[in-house]
Write a protein that binds this DNA or RNA. Structure first.
Length: 271
DNA sequence: ACTGGTTCCTGCGAGC
DNA sequence: TGCTCGCAGGAACCAG
């Protein structure tokens, strides 16, 4: 699923194909999901930014296209040349620029586009309340520790995007394993929080460098159609019953806040 | 201000 | 072989 590393990989791939290009036409099949996208026509793309798991296409002087890939959204570039010979599978929206075509695909139609006045994210609560970017200096260990000292359960707190941006189910499980913290642990000690801070930066940083990860069961692809440049070596995610790489105890899977949650019961103690 | 459950959607793999 | 049925999960939304 696209989490921060996959969205960042997407952003980097789109940038050279969009920045400086004028959007000629936007075609799509669902005005409810792709709200306001006709407003982009005639606008020149100034930048492609990312905030957490949101992509933000800066169009013209005043407009932002806020895009969330959710679970199966993604972009495709034509495999050869500037235009598509045939529509990619699950294409939902196509952007035609003065320099070529770009396709937005989304098997399950969870992904959304919203066109807003620049910086006006009212009503997009998660984006408005987004925590610091984990790979920037804004992600302050002390402030993070203070926040983690108050949360009742660490995993839902990390998924909320409120304390740190960009983590999803997979990287949360991996970061908690790295830090040796139980997903249901609450009110973390300062030491636990600092370990978690390091683990989050470590796992996300490595995944970004690798070009994101594509799981066996996931549909994420880079815009050039290649899978994530590196299959992230998952320590717990999707490894139920397999031995923990630290202590050889079988990895457990439970449901927590409605999500499949993987952890080592032995080296991720609740305390 | 929190938590937990439901919903959106559709392909896929397990099981019969 | 062919069918049904859960499962996958980001975040909005709602009820408690």
């Amino acid at each position: 699923m696209p989490e921060l590393p996959e969205v960042e990989t997407t952003r980097r791939a789109l940038e050279p194909h969009l920045v400086g290009r004028r959007i000629v036409r936007v075609q799509h099949d669902d005005p409810r999901l792709y709200q306001g996208t006709p407003l982009l026509e005639g606008q020149t793309v100034r930048a492609v930014d990312r905030r957490g798991k949101y992509l933000i296409i800066r169009a013209g002087e005043h407009l932002d296209a806020v895009v969330h890939l959710k679970m199966t959204g993604g972009f495709r570039l034509p495999p050869e040349g500037d235009v598509f010979a045939e529509a990619p599978r699950f294409e939902r929206l196509r952007v035609v620029t003065d320099g070529g075509e770009l396709s937005f695909t989304d098997m399950r139609r969870f992904g959304v586009w919203l066109v807003r006045q620049r910086g006006d994210y009212r009503g997009i609560d998660t984006l408005e309340r987004m925590g610091p970017e984990p790979l920037s200096d804004d992600f302050d260990p002390g402030a993070f520790a203070l926040a983690m000292a108050r949360v009742p359960k660490v995993k839902p707190a990390l998924l909320s995007q409120h304390h740190v941006a960009g983590l999803g189910n997979i990287y949360v499980d991996e970061a908690l394993w790295l830090a040796g913290i139980h997903p249901e642990a609450g009110r973390l000690t300062r030491e636990q929080s600092l370990r978690l801070h390091t683990a989050i930066r470590d796992v996300l940083g490595r995944a970004v460098e690798a070009g994101g990860s594509t799981l066996s069961d996931a549909t994420y692809r880079r815009p050039d159609g290649e899978p994530g440049g590196f299959k992230l070596h998952h320590r717990v995610y999707d490894r139920e019953g397999e031995p923990c790489e630290r202590c050889a105890s079988p990895v457990e899977k439970v449901r927590l806040a409605g999500r499949g949650t993987h952890f080592c019961p032995s080296c991720q103690p609740r305390g």
